[in-house]
Design a protein around this nucleic acid. Structure first.
Lengths: 67, 67
DNA sequence: CAATAGTCGGGTAATTAGGGCG
DNA sequence: CTTGTCCTAATTACCCGACTAT
């Protein structure tokens, strides 16, 4: 196996995409990252990207079904 | 373009929007969520979002027509 | 390299959460 | 028992100009 690097199979989402999932403003997603409520990966240019798996688990954990 | 986030395309509504649909105060909508009468999705900040489909179903279910 | 869309900042209104009372 | 209203604190939304990503 020559691909002993990190599994890039991880899809990254932009702040706008995460904002759509939570029905919030992209700016709000940025604040979550700043507050440490969600992990973020920054590009060399300073833009943020988020792990889809982390976003989905967070979304699932905060979801409550009607009884 | 990097769309194709998740065809889950679940439209979410804010407490204020749901309150407008039911002609009640947002506070009342919050109580419905707390009482488990309606499912809710909370943001990491603690605010709630509601599924439009679930709200519409609830509206239709509680609607009675004249015969 | 040029062009468009998205994001980054900072700052200020508007909305929401939570408890308690009528 | 359910809803509406008052209060404070917290979170979120929209404004701008400038930079990054594709």
């Amino acid at each position: 196996m020559r691909a002993a690097v990190r599994p890039s199979n991880e899809r990254l989402l932009t702040p706008g995409e995460v904002a759509t999932l939570f029905r919030v403003d992209p700016k709000t997603v940025t604040r979550w990252a700043t507050a440490g409520r969600i992990g973020s990966i920054r590009t060399p240019g300073g833009h943020r990207r988020f792990r889809e798996s982390e976003v989905n688990s967070l979304l699932a954990e905060l979801t409550t079904e009607a009884t």
